[in-house]
């Protein structure tokens, strides 16, 4: 949920780097945001042109007064952000969302990232390594040049298992296949495309491993006001919004807002 720190931050781009084809890393001078952000939280980037809806972006890394955003340019909104340069102003709403629970109880952890999902898990990986957990990163992308930042995770102390759909690097196939082949971890953290997350949930639920999934969806407002991004959740979940009993609505689930109650949900509590 929105924390007391959530507000509009006026930030300045301090560095812009291209990490791969259409992959941009914006580092921002954003002391308060960097200080307030927990692993798995995101921001809504207000378009400088004012001509599109705000864009939800994971906070990739925080360091001192710097916060960075890593994203793939996929449409009009991300193209506008990708066109920013050092010195440009970027206003952000954040930090938003519940983020991952990185309490470090599990000693052997798997992080599963697919494509741009990698942007949501670096802070989580750093935290878990710091807490003394063994962290294996299962990281998949379509092709080798989109497997960005692997070294960054290796440097952070993660063991890497890479996959590409086309076999140009790492094991060929889906990252979830690699996860399934590997010895079971005690906990799973995952972010990526919905089909990947569904498969991670199946694997985790079948083996009784607790998995936290950071869901991706098209947002309207991104802050809980419009109910445009929902996911069916078991009513018993602590994240389930208050709603009339199942018999009154003919459904044993309730819709939770991905932006507000999430974006991180327990795999075993989703009813998708």
């Amino acid at each position: 949920m929105a924390t007391i720190d959530t507000r509009v931050h006026a930030t300045t781009v301090s560095e812009r780097r291209e990490l791969g084809p259409g992959v941009v890393l914006l580092t921002l001078d954003a002391a308060e945001l960097a200080n307030a952000t927990r692993p798995g939280q995101y921001v809504m980037a207000i378009p400088p042109s004012g001509e599109t809806a705000a864009t939800a972006l994971a906070v990739y890394e925080t360091q001192g007064k710097l916060a960075s955003l890593l994203f793939f340019t996929t449409g009009k909104r991300t193209r506008e952000l990708a066109a920013l340069h050092s010195g440009d102003r970027l206003d952000l709403i954040g930090p938003l969302g519940n983020g991952f629970d990185c309490s470090g109880d599990a000693r052997d952890v798997a992080i599963v990232a697919g494509g741009v999902g990698i942007a949501s898990v670096l802070l989580c990986a750093q935290r878990l390594v710091r807490l003394g957990s063994r962290v294996r990163l299962f990281y998949g992308a379509r092709t080798a040049e989109l497997l960005i930042e692997s070294q960054r995770f290796a440097d952070a102390g993660c063991e890497l298992v890479e996959t590409t759909d086309d076999g140009t690097r790492g094991a060929p196939g889906f990252v979830t296949d690699a996860l399934e082949r590997a010895p079971r971890p005690q906990a799973i953290y995952a972010c990526g495309p919905t089909p990947m997350l569904r498969r991670v949930a199946q694997i985790a639920n079948a083996s009784g491993v607790r998995a936290q999934l950071s869901l991706e969806e098209t947002f309207g407002c991104g802050i809980g006001g419009c109910w445009g991004c929902v996911v069916p959740l078991v009513r018993a979940s602590v994240q389930a919004p208050s709603f009339p009993p199942a018999q009154a609505v003919n459904g044993d689930f309730v819709y939770a807002r991905i932006c507000r109650e999430g974006p991180v949900f327990w795999a075993h509590e989703l009813r998708w």
Partner: peptide, 17 residues
Amino acid sequence: PRLGNPMPRIVHTPAGM
């Protein structure tokens, strides 16, 4: 009470949604 529509519920379109 109403559960609302199934997802997706939002699509961004040129100059609107």
